[in-house]
Design a protein around this nucleic acid. Structure first.
Lengths: 195, 195
DNA sequence: TTTTATTGATTGACTGATCAGTCAACAAAA
DNA sequence: TTTTGTTGACTGATCAGTCAATCAATAAAA
C-alpha cells in the first residue's frame, strides 16, 4: 500500500481553513485558492478531495452542525433532570468551541445560504428541528404542553438572536451573559407554569 | 434642457430590483446585470447612477434602514405612553412592509456584509444602537434601570432571532405570533419589576 | 413657426481580471 | 511496480466596469 491516511487530515485542514477564510474574507468573496493556501495545499487538491467548491462549503456546514450536535449531546449525557437537560442545550449553544468569531461567521453564512441553496436549507432544517424538539421535550416535564411549545420557540429565537448580536458586537463575545439571559427567560416561564 | 428627473426614479427602481434579486438569486450570486435587467435598464446605467456594485448594495442597505426607521417613527408618533412606545417599536419591526421574504433576505445579507464590509458594519451599528436605545429609554419608565438594560437586550435579541427564524421557515411569516412573543417577554419583565 | 444647440439619459460592445474546475505528470510510500 | 498524494499550468466562463456613440427633450435663435 502507498502513502495513506492523508485524506482525513486534508479534509479537516480544508474545512478549518474554509471557516477561517470565510471569517476574514467574507463568505461571498471566498475562493477555493484562498482556502487551499490557508490549508497549505494547492487548489487542485481541494478539488481532488471535495469535487467542487459547493461541496467543500456544504461539508463545512455539515461540520458545524456535527460539532454543535456533539457538544450538546456531551452535555446532555451529564444532565440528570429535565431542567438540567434544558441548561445543557442552552450552554451547549454558547460553548467556547462554538461561540468563536470565525465559527459565528460561518454559521451566519450558512443561514444566508439556507435561503437559496437546497442542501443548506435541508441541513438548517435539521438543526432547527433538533433544537426545538430538544427544548420542547424537556419543557413539557416542567409546564403545560401548550406553554412548552411557545417557550421553546422563544428560547430558540433568543439563542439565534444572541448569536447574531454577538457576531456583530465588538470585542470578544461573552457567553456567560447570553446563557444567563436565556436561562432567566426559561426560568420565568417555568415559574408561570407553576402558578 | 434635456429629459430630466429620471435619476430618482431609476435609483428607486434599481434598489427595489436589488432587494428582489438578492432574494431569488442569493446575495453572493447576484450580478449587476441581473439587477439592471429586473429594473428594466442596462448594466451601464446602473453603474452610471451608483458608480459601482458595492455602492449600489450599500445604498440598498441604507434604504432598508431608512424604511424601518420611518415605519417605527410613524408608530412612535401615535404612541402616548412609554408602554405604547415599546409596543410601537416591537410591532414596527414586524410591520407588513418590513416583514416580507425579499426584505428579510436582504436584511440577512446585510448582516453577513456587516461582518467584513466596514460601511455595512457602520450602518448596522446605527440600527442596533437605535433599537436598543429606543427600548431602554421607555423601559426605564416601567422598571428599575438595571433591569431595563437586560430587558432591552433580551427583547432586541428576540426580535433579531424571530426575524431569522421566519426567514427560513416555510410559508408566509406570521407577524402576529412574533409580536405576541416579544410583548409577552416585555410584559413579564415589567411585572417582575413591579414586585 | 422652424431650426439648431445643448445636455441628461441610455446603451451595445468591449476589456481586463478573476476564478472554478481539469489534466497530465511527477513524487514517494509500500 | 503499483497506488496514493500532489501540483503547476491551463482553459472556458463570467462579470465588473468603461466608453464612444445615440436618443430625446427643450430652450433659444432665426
Amino acid at each position: 500500500m502507498p502513502k495513506t491516511g492523508m485524506e482525513p487530515i486534508r479534509r479537516r485542514a480544508l474545512i478549518s481553513a474554509a471557516i477561517e477564510t470565510i471569517h476574514d474574507r467574507g463568505f461571498c468573496d471566498v475562493t477555493v485558492g484562498q482556502i487551499a493556501r490557508r490549508a497549505g495545499v494547492s487548489t487542485a487538491l481541494a478539488h481532488h478531495y471535495f469535487g467542487s467548491k459547493d461541496q467543500l462549503l456544504a461539508e463545512t456546514m455539515r461540520h458545524l452542525l456535527r460539532e454543535l450536535g456533539r457538544t450538546i449531546v456531551a452535555r446532555l449525557r451529564r444532565a440528570a433532570t429535565p431542567r438540567q437537560r434544558i441548561s445543557a442545550v442552552i450552554s451547549g449553544n454558547f460553548a467556547p468551541t462554538q461561540f468563536r468569531p470565525a465559527t459565528i461567521s460561518a454559521w451566519l453564512a450558512f443561514y444566508v445560504q439556507a435561503q437559496t441553496a437546497p442542501e443548506a436549507r435541508r441541513l438548517h432544517r435539521i438543526y432547527a428541528r433538533r433544537l426545538k424538539s430538544n427544548l420542547v421535550h424537556d419543557l413539557k416535564a416542567l409546564m403545560p404542553d401548550d406553554l412548552a411549545a411557545g417557550t421553546a420557540e422563544g428560547a430558540a429565537a433568543l439563542i439565534d438572536g444572541l448569536w447574531i448580536r454577538y457576531a456583530l458586537a465588538d470585542g470578544t463575545p461573552d457567553p456567560g451573559s447570553a446563557i444567563r439571559l436565556v436561562e432567566d427567560y426559561v426560568e420565568s416561564k417555568i415559574a408561570r407554569g407553576r402558578q
